[in-house]
């Protein structure tokens, strides 16, 4: 693994390697001294062309816990607005001998360009690009779903897949990099993905996608789900005629108290996930968000762990077995 650009090209072994490493990193996060010396003296650049408090916070925590030196470069819109180009920025980072670049960018494919255009030759971690991919988000979701499975079955998380788990991802699939990255990763891990969205918020030609598609949320619930992942809906979508009103969206595709009650009443455990930040009362009700079925805060905790894992693996060429001697 040279870069982490997308989850589509991750094999099952790659995915388990990252997740098992992340489990160990999670243990570090529980300690009083939350620090590993593995990236001491190495420089990681956080290159954020798009606002993101949460992802950036999470990456910074991960980098600090691995003892890396950090440079933050915030350049919101600078490339798009014809300021400094991505190429110039990349070459600048190469010139100051950065050892890895974490990039968030509003343009789909920008991390791949950074990795492949020959401007800089270091590992590139995609922290979310346009409506394309958000691999560390999908990994933290998978880590959370493994913990959910481990909790309900009593199994160890390490080495665990998501074989047979039914995961509904609900909301604006069309514009969601989270949905795309989860589709590929959760499928690789053996889960059955169900997309639930109004037809306006689904891409055309998804016949080849390894998932079931529902326009009707209730039918999706009735078909059986072990976890629901609610996507943030952007209110401005309604002005572009993707749906008539936020009230109608909430009624048809929101995790309303009524729908949550039905999930809650199922004869098996269910988990509620949300990548955050949540629009309470729009795509998710407060009842669902604050219930004990909600794994939202665990997702945030796990975000730091998977980012530590990804940085460690990409920058040191290590593997999960490094942390499990004798296993």
């Amino acid at each position: 693994m040279r870069h982490l650009l997308d989850t589509k090209d991750l094999s099952l072994a790659d995915a388990l390697n990252i997740l098992d490493t992340a489990d160990y990193m999670g243990e570090i996060g529980q300690r009083e001294v939350k620090k590993l010396p593995v990236l001491q003296g190495r420089t990681v650049v956080n290159l954020f062309f798009e606002d993101s408090t949460r992802t950036r916070l999470s990456f910074e925590a991960a980098e600090k816990r691995l003892s890396a030196d950090i440079i933050n470069f915030s350049a919101k819109g600078s490339s798009v607005s014809k300021g400094e180009s991505l190429k110039d920025t990349a070459q600048t980072l190469a010139a100051i001998n950065a050892d890895a670049v974490v990039i968030r960018h509003g343009a789909s494919g920008a991390p791949q360009r950074l990795a492949e255009a020959g401007w800089i030759d270091v590992p590139v971690l995609n922290a979310g690009d346009g409506t394309h991919a958000h691999p560390t988000q999908a990994l933290l979701d998978a880590m959370t779903l493994r913990q959910f499975r481990a909790q309900t079955t009593g199994a160890e998380t390490r080495g665990l897949t998501l074989e047979g788990m039914r995961v509904a991802i609900v909301g604006d699939i069309l514009h969601s990099r989270v949905a795309r990255s989860n589709l590929w990763l959760l499928t690789t891990l053996g889960a059955q993905v169900k997309f639930v969205a109004p037809p306006t918020l689904l891409p055309v030609e998804t016949e080849d996608w390894p998932c079931e598609i529902f326009y009707n949320f209730d039918e999706a619930i009735e078909s059986g789900v072990d976890a629901v992942m609610m996507l943030r809906i952007q209110k401005e979508r309604m002005h572009n005629a993707f749906f008539p009103s936020s009230e109608e969206y909430s009624r048809l595709w929101g995790l309303t108290p009524e729908r949550f009650a039905r999930l809650d009443a199922a004869d098996h455990e269910t988990a509620v996930l949300h990548p955050g930040p949540m629009n309470r009362g729009l795509e998710i009700s407060a009842e669902a968000a604050d219930s004990d079925r909600s794994w939202v805060l665990r997702q945030v905790t796990n975000g730091v762990s998977v980012r530590m894992a990804a940085l460690y693996l990409l920058m040191t060429g290590g593997k999960s077995a490094d942390f499990y001697p004798g296993a």
């Binding site: 494919g109 346009g130 795309r180 891409p203 055309v204 080849d208």
Partner: peptide, 18 residues
């Protein structure tokens, strides 16, 4: 619009030109 709208644009997350 960034590319042909279809199978590939759906995966790449680029706005489609139908």
């Amino acid at each position: 619009a960034q590319m042909n709208e279809g199978k590939v644009s759906a995966e790449l997350g680029l706005a489609g030109w139908p």
